[in-house]
Write a protein that binds this DNA or RNA. Structure first.
Lengths: 204, 204, 204, 204
DNA sequence: AATGAATGAGCTTTCATTCAT
DNA sequence: GATGAATGAAAGCTCATTCAT
């Protein structure tokens, strides 16, 4: 029982013999399962079933479960911008964080995409990817914080990253309430205070 | 002369019929493996081998892998106090957080014990346990914050919980640097700022 | 369909919870299948079915298919003596060869055991074993030939080994007739001539 | 300008619609793989890749893996002559055998072509082919031996065939040394002695 | 004629679990 | 209470084969 098809792909007969579409369907299904269940609990049979394609095509397109996982990881939108539109000041940062963390942004995943980033396949290469992605996020926070005046500026930036990760985990994976139900509006105030506390008050 | 074996690990061969010690040894081994590897990657054979006892005893004492996991979860020291000695004011809270998050506190686990709390066996009962433990932590933070004056006081308390979780994850599971290497001294300053930002300045 | 149970083991209920017997049964079944079908065509499912035991026990006792193969190879009686009773002169050698090659000696296998020695699992370690076994056989032939007077004495000994291998292959695997049907009596005359031709006439 | 491609390996990309060349390329690749790896370890994908043609063409031209195997078998040059130039007396036979067995004759295969003849696909039809080919060889040896005077003349001829098979196996598949390294010159003397021993001295 | 997408069946391996002793 | 043999189910992977274009 491939438990519930959560992808919402066409029933059948529609996409056929379309390599690109097949790849896409597999990636979407994989991302969803990996994000929700983690690496081990995700079976290739279920991913294939969700995508509505044959199991062997996973091998064809991604080589192995690891390959599929890496591809799914790479295709997962990064936490906040990283498409160049990272907020340029602290106030905007708090607002962006609030929006992103209150999910809804990528409701398609069922879970916050940063959870995908935290999934572990046991591959060291994946661990490195994880580190790089979060380090990059920290670097951007540092920039948005204005001058890295304080000697522990980088540490403070990474604490904000950690907060983001923690909120995503506690909301999606744990379901801690009221945090899990908070809207962007609920979050923006407290987050602004944290940002200010960590990065210093806005330059005025 | 059956000498006391407080570690729960038998010398060898001459394991005595000491049910309590066997249980303890199994729990320790299980907690370690579960924390470091997660539920799926932990095999009962390895746990039994680590504990130096027969595999079938896991069934006898804990019924199943799920049972062992729940017992291990219950036996894991909670994040911060929870033995009644939760810090009573914001300054003490920041300090305690710094100490706990900088690990070393429970080096025996190899990883921060809160990670055990985040491990998922797929059982809903476990998810509930997880929620309860973190909710309880949030409640205690709320208390330490003085009066729950603000309407979003509980949300703010849970954001602090989320930060704790996030830091543990980012330090242990991700290894993000410099955060992963930070000492209690490094952390206390920034954390004090976050606590103040979230809970308001100390009443002075 | 585990095609025909050729092992002749008790139907069921007899041997139970007897590790040694289980190992033995698996080895016998494996030897038979490997010898008759080769490495690739032999499935562990069929071996287990033939032995009347559970598939997973192969892992328990031999680690893997390769492990089972190596164990089966090691447990296969060597071509001619090698238990110390190698014929000490040329006449006896021809007679022994005739007897061994006319099979019936190890009818239990269904095929001549030297075929097992020729089976290839792709493992280099196995290839080495193969070489060693045949080299040892060549060495013994050399000894039985009296003094290694001629400079190509070793080559001639190995040609006799090759003849043995060839006869086994052509009889068992190919079924070339009349060679496949020849009795020891049929073979001894011609083989004596070959032995003399290769190793020189008996010292008389 | 479609240049002639006698190797059957296309330059690249511009494979012409030359059915005959495609067939030839496939057969060559198949023969090589089958000879070196055996039936099971040879994958059609690899054969197609070696031949530089599309996988599906194997089906078109040969119907199935079995079909390809049979065609490859049929296209394999027979052991010794069989093109009509079989040696007509014993001395020439020993010399021809030496040359053929010392390989180099069909170095293109990487292995002695008689190994292809021994490869097993599990098909009874193939077994029959195998038998026929070797029986034919035996018949020719019998002829070359002069009159079939002795009652066991046919058996003796087949023993010589078996020797040929054994030498090929022991040289190529086993790598037994010094036999594996012997040159035609090394072999001719001993083989002459075997031929004489088996078929009687040349009529002089 | 030729291509590449898609499929189904089967294999080894791995575990949690259960059963006798 | 404790041991180790035995089992069943499922997973990842591989490959010959078939189907559209």
């Amino acid at each position: 029982m491939p438990s519930d098809d959560v992808t919402g792909r066409p029933g059948d007969g529609t996409r056929r013999r379309d390599a690109a579409a097949t790849r896409r369907a597999l990636l979407l299904a994989a991302r969803t399962r990996f994000t929700q269940l983690g690496y081990d609990r995700t079976t290739l049979r279920d991913v294939a079933a969700d995508a509505g394609v044959n199991l062997a095509l996973i091998k064809r397109y991604f080589g192995s479960k690891e390959g599929l996982f890496k591809a799914a990881l790479a295709s997962t939108p990064r936490f906040l911008g990283s498409d160049g539109e990272f907020p340029r000041d602290r106030v905007a940062l708090a607002e962006a964080l609030s929006r992103q963390l209150a999910a809804g942004a990528w409701a398609e995943f069922g879970e916050h995409p940063v959870l995908m980033l935290l999934r572990d396949s046991g591959d060291e290469q994946v661990a490195q990817l994880r580190r790089q992605a979060l380090a990059e996020f920290g670097r951007q926070v540092l920039e948005a914080s204005g001058g890295s005046s304080a000697p522990d500026a980088r540490l403070r930036a990474e604490l904000l990253v950690a907060l983001g990760v923690g909120v995503a985990v506690v909301r999606s994976a744990v379901g801690l309430r009221p945090l899990a139900d908070a809207t962007p509006e609920d979050l923006v105030g407290p987050l602004r205070d944290v940002v200010e506390g960590l990065l210093g008050p806005p330059p005025d």
